[in-house]
Design a protein around this nucleic acid. Structure first.
Length: 952
RNA sequence: GCCGGGGUACCCGAGCCUGGUCAAGGGGGUGGGCUUAAGACCCACUGGCGUAGGCCAUCCUGGGUUCGAAUCCCAGCCCCGGCACCA
């Protein structure tokens, strides 16, 4: 759109969105999360950003001094990954860059430098942000990582503070690990196994000779039901030195355990067949169990050793059956191998595993349905199972309680341990199979800290959260959050201030940066140099700690500048509203609250968060791999910024996912063009100066729209707001223009307000219309219209409703009868019916709807001569009255009814042109009335009788 | 599995909290108007039946509460999203 570029330029030249503190003027700080610069901005970004910008514009027009800043996220490993893949010559990445992201061919070789990638996209994307009309104060722009030194200084300060306050700790944790790449393998780095996370198993040690068999299980409580230990006779086993014990596990398990913190030495290989038939001793119970062969035991899963609980584990039971069928089992062993029932669970007898195996007709260890059976029993017993009397001190405990207690006891007595493994195969992009590694010396943000959690939860309960449903989600996330590993070894970012072998992780460096916006312009314009930004400076600016004069001397920052930065921070902070997609609720947005709570005074904690859904394209999830990713740039070229913005806003509200449809965008484009046309038409036509009821109607409707748009925006209902501003106003306009052949000056007033209401959503079109209308200044800076209740005219509105209803009724009659109408007779009800209406309106409507007898009695008192027809008439009238909106005042209904004939008379020519034949307006009982079909008797107040003469 | 959000007409979607104004609004389709024509725009219709403005059906399914249920309660079915070292 040509006019969009024009207005973008004018805004820039007039610096309309640059915001500085103004004493006494209320401020409003709106922000959206910065986006990661590994690709072009797409419609998903655009949705959140447009909501943010529209809200910022709305507040600005309301008279707030609004700060809406922008910056770019460079921290992370993904960009580095792209570079690596490019260096390796991965053809897929070249295709992606060239075909999907439209990177110019000649620049692609330079993408081997991660910093170049970020710079490239930042430059591209900044153009897009401007073209979308986002009302950004660019003087405050920054990007992350140590490539932008003052950002790193800010991160340094933040982490030193967090550590000082005890919110950072050192520890270890399990990750999915690629032994080839020597790094953690996140979901997006995997060829196979998306969503697979390290699972915690319990190793249970069974003593055998001078070593232990380490059986892995998810269900340590079943140790009471163990009947034997299974080994796979064909698998490779090894004896290892495991801490201070000798332990037998599969060869593969030994490799896995090597990554899991233990001192491990392989002593020798063991042939499982040599152990079959031997005995071992179970921990806790001390029972002697035989070691038996089972081919379902997978040496690649956990330890490759399994103990058997045939009563409660379908696999074990089926393996047992098969063993018993095979000939060479001796009778003594079989005797021992009776299933032992240890858990009672509703819906099952003593042996759930046996029941389910029989029910499903499973007879082989290789039957795939065993997984299903296992899962069912596992779930059922975990949630509803209770330990039976034969479980020692654990008898009577729910399974879920007993499980943890037994695990703890096994570990503390040295007869068990924790082992991590993956529930399914994970293959790294490099093709190597991953395993679980316990990363040592990892730094954590201690989100598990109960006091910290509590403070965060209290704040979440108090702050503004839109939509309201998201509040509970936030609270649940806080409960669920564990310590967060906040450092990485690779990728772009800021080195951890006290240990530069680590880089602050991407989500962890993106928490309180809105604070930086309040002062970044001082760095951007060179007033303050990065190296001057010592911790004392940040302490002073953000926390008000330290002595101004001393710090100024130390850092060479003039006192006034320091003071200004402090004042400016205090002016803008806290953030009044942060707008984001809902996917950030379980991480970024919650971290954002945590970190503010940890570092700042309570009055500087975030005031409000609004979350929205995630985009789909023509009903499909948007993704690069699907090839349906739409860059903002593409939408801009097709529909322009305003149509793109409105199409997105109109697509969804609250946490619903917006669906982008090209058809909708085309339609919105037409609507915006139509608006400009209407403005042209009105400004070039002669307007009547006298005003009538229709003008009052228009203005009344207009103010109701003002109210609904304002209310919707106040609660971040951007879809409703945009819809009302665009289509709500348009519908009113259509009726007005149709009814009033000659427009009056109220048309101007209406357009003036329409443009203002639209300005947050379609700012370019609003500016264009504003200037076409001859208004001075920018629509973006125009005053937001106030709702004026005194301009609401319920009577005028009800009168138009009456006419619309009359037209509908006549059309329906014509439709049913068929043919073309030649004359329409309208009969307004007689005086006494009006009086009955007035009587009825004295009653509580709900009351007489239930039981009309009181109203009937009262009416009869006044009109005893109508004894016969009164009961039916009153009931009919009550029913009719109830179809009017309940908020219509009774006074208005009565007044309207008394003016009914006049309303039809006044609109006669309109009615005639709508239906296409002459109208005759009568009163039901007047002299000389033309009423061949007796339709006048049907007249009710506010519902005239109608007689349509038809042409054959 | 856990947590969160949903299921409304041909499609998209409001209404649900606070029961009766009710099945909004937009798209698509059909018919008509305007126009030299096309487009744009305007109007009507778009579940069924109906020779008078009406009647009946309908808001995932099945029960219940109520004079009255898309809305409140109970049970069930189905869909989508998040689930940790990843932006």
């Amino acid at each position: 759109m040509a006019y969009e570029a024009k207005w973008a330029k004018l805004w820039r030249e007039a610096k309309v969105f640059e915001a500085d503190p103004i004493k006494g003027k209320p401020k409003f700080f709106v922000c959206v999360p910065y986006s990661y610069q590994n690709g072009p901005l797409h419609l998903g970004h655009a949705f959140t950003f447009t909501r943010g910008d529209s809200y910022a514009r709305f507040r600005r027009m309301q008279g707030f001094n609004v700060l809406f800043p922008w910056s770019w996220h460079w921290t992370g490993e993904a960009v580095a990954g792209t570079s690596e893949r490019l260096k390796r010559g991965d053809p897929a990445i070249v295709r992606l860059l060239r075909d999907i992201d439209k990177v110019p061919e000649e620049l692609i070789p330079r993408f081997t430098d991660p910093a170049f990638i970020c710079k490239y996209y930042t430059t591209e994307n900044k153009k897009v942000v401007d073209a979308m009309g986002f009302s950004v104060d660019w003087r405050r722009e920054f990007y992350t990582t140590n490539l932008h030194p003052y950002y790193s200084k800010f991160i340094n300060w933040q982490y030193l503070k967090l550590r000082e306050k005890g919110f950072v700790s050192k520890g270890e944790h399990p990750v999915v690990w690629c032994p080839n790449c020597q790094s953690a393998t996140g979901d997006h780095d995997r060829l196979i196994g998306e969503g697979i996370v390290p699972e915690e198993y319990t190793l249970v040690f069974f003593k055998c000779d001078d070593f232990y068999l380490a059986a892995g299980t998810l269900r340590p409580e079943t140790i009471f039901g163990a009947t034997n230990v299974w080994l796979n006779p064909d698998a490779e086993y090894v004896l290892i030195e495991y801490d201070d014990k000798k332990v037998l596990v599969s060869k593969r398990a030994a490799e896995k355990l090597l990554e899991q913190k233990h001192a491990i030495n392989i002593i020798k290989s063991i042939n499982a067949k040599d152990l079959i038939g031997k005995k071992c001793k179970a921990p806790i119970t001390g029972v002697e169990l035989p070691i038996l062969p089972a081919n379902f035991v997978d040496p690649d899963v956990v330890s490759g050793v399994v103990y058997s609980v045939p009563a409660h584990a379908p696999y074990d039971y089926v393996a047992l059956l098969e063993l018993q069928r095979s000939a060479n089992m001796n009778a003594e062993l079989l005797r021992v191998l009776n299933p032992i029932s240890i858990i009672s669970v509703p819906g099952y007898g003593d042996f759930p595993a046996i029941e389910i195996v029989k029910r499903m007709g499973i007879s082989s260890q290789n039957d795939e349905r065993l997984d299903e059976a296992t899962k069912e029993i596992y779930t059922k017993e975990f949630h509803e199972g209770v330990m039976k009397d034969n479980c020692g001190e654990y008898s009577g405990l729910p399974v879920r309680v007993a499980r943890d207690a037994i695990k703890t006891r096994l570990i503390s007595t040295g007869l068990g341990d924790v082992m991590y493994d993956l529930s399914a195969k994970v293959i790294c992009r490099c093709g190597t199979e991953c395993l679980v590694k316990i990363v040592k010396d990892q730094w954590f943000l201690t989100y598990s800290n109960p006091e910290w959690k509590e403070k965060v939860k209290l704040h979440i309960m108090r702050m503004g959260i839109f939509p309201e449903e998201a509040r509970q989600w936030f609270l649940n996330v806080v409960d669920w959050l564990r310590d967060w590993a906040c450092t990485r070894k690779t990728g772009l970012g800021t080195p951890l201030p006290w240990d530069s072998s680590w880089i602050v992780e991407t989500l962890s460096d993106s928490t309180i940066y809105p604070a930086l916006y309040t002062i970044s312009k001082y760095m951007n314009n060179g007033t303050v140099k990065p190296e001057q930004l010592t911790s004392e400076v940040f302490d002073y600016v953000f926390l008000g700690v330290g002595d101004l004069i001393t710090i100024s001397k130390k850092t060479n920052i003039p006192e006034k500048v320091l003071k200004d930065m402090r004042d400016e921070f205090l002016y803008w902070y806290p953030v009044d509203c942060r707008i984001s997609a809902k996917e950030l609720v379980p991480n970024h947005l919650t971290f954002y609250i945590f970190q503010h709570v940890a570092l700042f005074d309570e009055n500087l904690w975030p005031r409000c968060v609004s979350v929205n859904g995630m985009i789909t394209i023509e009903g499909e999830k948007m993704s690069k791999s699907k090839g349906n990713m739409i860059p903002i740039k593409t939408a801009l070229a097709k529909y322009g910024a305003d149509a793109t913005r409105c199409t997105l806003l109109l697509a969804a509200e609250d946490m619903d996912d917006p669906d982008w449809r090209d058809k909708n965008a085309q339609e919105v484009r037409r609507m915006l063009d139509l608006l400009l046309k209407i403005v042209d038409e009105v400004s070039s036509s002669e307007l009547e100066t006298n005003e009538n009821r229709l003008d009052r109607w228009l203005i009344s409707r207009m103010f109701k729209r003002v109210k609904s748009v304002t209310d919707a925006m106040e609660s971040l209902k951007t879809r409703t707001a945009c819809h009302e501003a665009l289509y709500g106003m348009y519908n009113d306009w259509k009726w007005y223009a149709r009814r009033r052949k000659k427009l009056s000056r109220s048309a101007l007033r209406f357009l003036d307000t329409w443009i203002r209401l639209l300005a947050p959503f379609a700012p370019f079109t609003a500016e264009e219309a504003w200037s076409k209308l001859g208004r001075e200044g920018f629509a973006s800076l125009a005053k937001w219209p106030d709702y004026r209740v005194e301009e609401v005219d319920e009577l005028a509105e009800a009168a138009e409703d009456l006419l619309a209803k009359l037209l509908r009724d006549i059309r329906e009659i014509v439709e049913v009868v068929g043919g073309k109408p030649s004359k329409v007779h309208v009969y307004v009800s007689s005086k006494w019916k009006l009086d009955v209406l007035s009587i009825i309106l004295n009653f509580d409507l709900k009351e007489i709807m239930r039981n009309p007898s009181a109203a009937i009695k009262e009416s009869l008192k006044n009109f005893p001569e109508k004894k016969k027809e009164m009961p039916t008439f009153v009931k009919k009238l009550i029913e009719h009255v109830s179809t009017f909106p309940s908020e219509t005042p009774k006074k208005v209904l009565l007044e309207l009814a008394s003016q009914e004939k006049g309303i039809y008379e006044e609109a006669k020519s309109f009615l005639e042109s709508e239906i296409g034949c002459p109208f005759y307006i009568w009163i039901e009982d007047e002299q000389g009335i033309y009423d061949p079909s007796g339709k006048s008797k049907q007249a009710l107040p506010l519902r005239p009788g109608i007689f349509v003469e038809m042409n054959r």
